[in-house]
Amino acid sequence: MSVFEYCFSTLGCSEMSLHDIIDLAERHDITAVELRALSGTVDLISALTTQFEDPAGLAAFLAGRNIEIVALNTSIKLFESPDLSAIEQFIPWAEAADVAHLRIFDGGKQLCADQIKRAADLLGDWQARRRSSGLNVDLMIETHDALAHVEQLVAFVELVPTAKILWDTHHTWARGTDLDSVWEGIAQNIVHLHVKDSKVDRDGRRHYVLPGHGDFPMADLISLLQRNERHIPLSLEWERHWHPELPSLEDALTTARNWWQQGVFDAYR
């Protein structure tokens, strides 16, 4: 049994409705997805409201379907927002669908101590609100901007040891940090993983390619995960919404089958 579950972000199939997304997942024996875009927009609340009217409608739709929504992905940036009030509209949908996490970005660039302290205060306020309201959903912070730098990431989790981290393995690796170094610094904070592949072309720039066609060290990541026993979603973030020249998510999931099962992991559960 694998220590994580395979899933994908709907950023790779943003034109699809949730019904079509579930069909896609079933074709690839995947039982978990993270919602970033639906029906042509990254405005998830608008798309969900159009399709299901309210959170109860989403819950009714999901009942009996073999799919888990592991995250609703917001555009909120922790280090650039005065507060986290924009998260409020996502909470009823997440609670109704039993979603584990709401993704927020880190944002920022070179962080100072005051920025980290302010972010810690915001997260502390969130946890107080979460406890007082009896919420199940929690926030996870993606290593996208400032926290893609491992020194700042480690400093952040040292100050906020309860922070939940969505580790975008490609972002930290592309910045020059080996996977083991990141894991050693934040292992207990990681609740979700993003994976993708890329290579440097003749123009000297790194470009996304189909899983297994680039130089991301997936075998090293698999080996790293094998040495641990935590159940962590491993999500293919195929950025076709931002890079429409990329092949379809269907093609990416097909090539990912062998790529993210390197080593002795069992096949899709």
Rank of each mutant, 00 (worst) to 15 (best):
E158R: 15
E158Q: 15
E158N: 15
E158S: 15
E158H: 15
L159C: 09
L159S: 09
L159V: 09
V160Y: 06
V160A: 08
V160Q: 08
P161A: 14
P161M: 13
T162E: 07
T162W: 08
T162K: 08
T162S: 11
A163C: 12
A163S: 10
K164N: 15
K164C: 09
K164W: 06
I165D: 06
L166Y: 08
W167Y: 12
W167K: 13
D168N: 12
D168V: 14
D168W: 09
D168A: 13
D168P: 11
T169Q: 07
T169W: 08
T169S: 14
T169P: 10
T169N: 09
T169Y: 09
H170S: 10
H170E: 11
H170Y: 12
H171A: 12
H171V: 07
T172G: 08
W173H: 15
A174G: 10
A174E: 14
A174H: 12
R175E: 14
R175K: 15
R175G: 09
G176D: 11
G176H: 13
G176Y: 11
G176I: 13
G176V: 13
T177V: 15
D178C: 13
L179R: 08
L179C: 10
L179F: 08
L179G: 10
D180K: 13
D180L: 15
D180F: 06
S181Y: 06
S181G: 07
V182P: 10
V182T: 13
W183M: 14
W183H: 12
E184M: 13
E184N: 14
E184G: 12
G185I: 04
G185R: 05
G185L: 05
I186Y: 00
I186A: 02
I186M: 00
I186Q: 00
I186H: 01
A187M: 03
A187G: 01
A187V: 03
A187L: 04
A187I: 02
A187F: 02
Q188E: 06
N189W: 01
I190V: 15
H192Y: 08
H192K: 05
H192A: 06
H192F: 11
H194W: 00
V195K: 02
V195G: 03
K196I: 02
K196F: 02
K196Q: 00
D197A: 02
D197C: 05
D197M: 04
D197N: 01
S198E: 00
S198Q: 00
K199R: 12
K199I: 13
V200Q: 05
V200L: 04
V200P: 02
V200M: 03
D201F: 06
D201E: 06
D201H: 05
D201N: 06
R202Y: 01
R202V: 05
G204R: 01
G204E: 01
G204A: 04
G204S: 04
G204M: 03
G204H: 03
R205Y: 00
R206N: 03
R206D: 02
H207Y: 01
H207I: 05
H207K: 01
Y208Q: 02
